[in-house]
């Protein structure tokens, strides 16, 4: 890679790549922890609201916001993946090859994360929050 970019753009680029790799997984982790703990703790304590917000609403937020996060990561990872197509030679620039590998990993991770969040959202649609 002969092209040079400013150090700030390079820093942002590096961070964006990591967001593309881990953004979806982080969103899903937030979704999973928030939705589960809200549901289990509120229901065990016999509440059907969370500080005034109905439980269903709180859980919906815990699905929708992470879903948005995972989608954003997915978009960045697709962009990165398309722009980092490795050169045909196996011994092409290894930094590009490495970054492309990370983009592929991120792309798939984001897809899975989004799938899990959506699956969880479906469960929230089907099951009343405190039914046992």
């Amino acid at each position: 890679m002969s092209e040079r970019v400013s150090s700030r753009a390079a820093l942002v680029g590096g961070l964006l790549l990591w967001f593309a790799v881990l953004g979806g997984a982080l969103s899903w982790a937030v979704h999973s922890l928030a939705a589960w703990s809200i549901d289990e703790l509120a229901c065990e304590a016999g509440h059907d609201d969370l500080a005034g917000v109905p439980l269903v609403g709180a859980i919906a937020l815990a699905v929708l916001l992470p879903a948005a996060g995972a989608t954003a990561a997915l978009v960045v990872s697709v962009l990165a993946w398309r722009r980092l197509r490795p050169e045909p030679r196996e011994d092409g620039d290894r930094a590009t090859g490495r970054a492309h590998l990370l983009a592929v990993v991120g792309l798939w991770l984001n897809l899975l994360a989004l799938a899990m969040i959506v699956f969880g959202g479906v469960a929230a649609l089907v099951l009343p929050p405190c039914q046992r």
């Binding site: 092209e3 970019v5 400013s6 680029g13 722009r83 590009t96």
Partner: peptide, 16 residues
């Protein structure tokens, strides 16, 4: 503009 540069391959492959 910075963001566009950052999303160019040269930006994405940055390592410390």
């Amino acid at each position: 503009a910075d963001l566009r540069t950052a999303l160019r391959p040269a930006g994405l492959v940055t390592e410390q």
